[in-house]
């Protein structure tokens, strides 16, 4: 009896510690962003006069957002990022699923080698090879064109291939076989039978690839240099120059870029977590 009482006290203490720890960790995780929200709604005068922890006078002051949006040409950034995102997602899903289909369903000379080539490629850090990729892009006249950037993003896409390979391993081969007996060609098998079944893998790879393309900075900085080709992350980077320490504008810019990702995350949390576990292969 005494033991039971003791355990209950222990449970109680554990629960308190558990909640205090979890809640304070959540607060610490949010503080840097929340402070940005406060600051982004402050007028210049308010920003000068108050510390960052003070709430803004009103959350209705969108001047900084408008300023940030127009000065950094974020509309252009969103437009370019949007185009790149859609094209890259469509192409990389198509290419990766076709490649995974061939590698999983057929055994031929060199199929093992090809698989290993892709595996090894995932070890090579992306930023490291850009020195020589830059030269190739230059020779192919792909610099300063959206399509050049799209091509290079598709070319460095290993994550989706992994995801589709895993998925095909779990799709029964009997599906292909019976379709072929019914007179389907291999192309028909892939496009009519298998592709529609890939939906979960497509969602996972869209989430992962989407986030990484949206956040990509290094390559868009290298390959999209003219100002009308800025993507959202290079547009955000322009705040290092003219605004210096005008953090009320910078914070507004930061929040504008975060917002779409936040919305996506809130809508499909489950897929995002699932995607992490399934395909956190490489940046």
């Amino acid at each position: 009896m005494g033991k039971l009482k003791h355990m209950k006290l222990g449970d109680w203490i554990f629960n308190i510690v558990q909640y205090v720890m979890l809640i304070s960790a959540s607060i610490i995780a949010l503080i840097p962003v929340v402070v940005c929200i406060f600051t982004a709604f402050k007028t210049d005068a308010e920003y000068q006069a108050t510390t960052p922890l003070v709430l803004p006078e009103s959350f209705g002051n969108f001047d900084n957002f408008v300023q940030a949006f127009t000065k950094a040409n974020m509309l252009r950034g969103f437009l370019n990022t949007g185009i790149v995102l859609i094209v890259v997602l469509v192409l990389s899903i198509l290419f990766a699923s076709m490649l995974a289909y061939v590698l999983d369903r057929f055994r031929f000379i060199g199929s093992g080698l090809i698989r290993n080539l892709f595996m090894f490629a995932s070890l090579i850090p992306g930023i490291a090879t850009q020195v020589t990729v830059y030269q190739i892009m230059y020779n192919l006249r792909l610099i300063n064109h959206l399509y050049g950037y799209i091509i290079v993003l598709c070319g460095t896409d290993i994550i989706s291939i992994y995801i589709f390979l895993q998925f095909f391993e779990n799709l029964p081969k009997s599906l292909d076989e019976s379709a072929i007996l019914d007179g389907c060609s291999y192309f028909g098998v892939f496009f009519k039978i298998l592709f529609p079944l890939l939906k979960p893998a497509i969602v996972t790879s869209c989430v992962l690839k989407g986030v990484s393309v949206y956040n990509e900075y290094y390559m868009s900085n290298l390959y999209l240099q003219s100002s009308e080709l800025k993507t959202i992350s290079t547009a955000l980077y322009t705040f290092t120059g003219p605004y210096g320490s005008q953090y009320n504008y910078i914070c507004a810019g930061v929040l504008i870029t975060i917002l779409p990702i936040l919305v996506l995350f809130l809508i499909c949390q489950k897929q995002v977590y699932g995607g992490m576990a399934a395909g956190a292969v490489k940046g």
Binding site: Y214, N215, S233, V254, T257, I258, V272
Partner: peptide, 16 residues
């Protein structure tokens, strides 16, 4: 709350 920082782009993290 704890996971969300992972989704923020590196440049934004830098500014924050």
């Amino acid at each position: 709350c704890m996971f969300f920082p992972y989704l923020i782009c590196g440049i934004a993290v830098g500014f924050i």
